[in-house]
Amino acid sequence: MRKTITRENAGGRAVHDVGGLDFGAIDRSEHDLALWEKRVDAMMILLYSKQGLWTVDAMRRTIESYGEQAYDDTEYYEKWMRAMRNLLVEQEVLGKAEIEAEMAEVAERHRKAGRSVPVHTVDWP
C-alpha cells in the first residue's frame, strides 16, 4: 500500500496527500455511524459555531500531523476525535492530565460494567 509515484521536485508528500497513490480496491460496504461518532460530529460542530475553537484548516492541520501509521489505521471520526482532543489542549480549554485521568475513569467504569476496554491510550499530539 501507499505505493508511491515518483517525480522529481514536487516537494515532500505529506501523510494525508494521497492523490495518485495505490491503496488497493475500494471497499464499498456502508454502515450507519455509531452513536459516539455522531456525538463527535455534533461536538466538533458546536465547538466551531459556539466556541470558535477551530477552523476547518486547523482541524486538517491537526489530523495531518498524526504520522503515517496512525493516519492510515484510524477511521474518519477517530481522526476527528483526536483532533478535537488536541485542539482543546492547544487552545487551553482542557488539560492533558485531566483528559487522561477522565479517560482512565471512563475505561474503568465500563470495564466494571463488563465491557472489554483497551488498556492502551492515544499518543500526543
Binding site: 509515484i5 517525480r7 521536485n9 514536487a10 516537494g11 515532500g12 508528500r13 505529506a14 496527500d17 492523490g19 495518485g20 484548516d57 486538517r60 492541520r61 495531518e64
Partner: peptide, 17 residues
C-alpha cells in the same frame, strides 16, 4: 509551484509542477 512545504497546505503533491 513545486516547493516543499513543512506545514499545512492545500496544493496537492500530484499537481505540483
Amino acid at each position: 509551484d513545486d516547493r516543499a512545504v513543512a506545514g499545512h497546505c492545500r496544493a496537492p503533491w500530484y499537481l505540483r509542477g
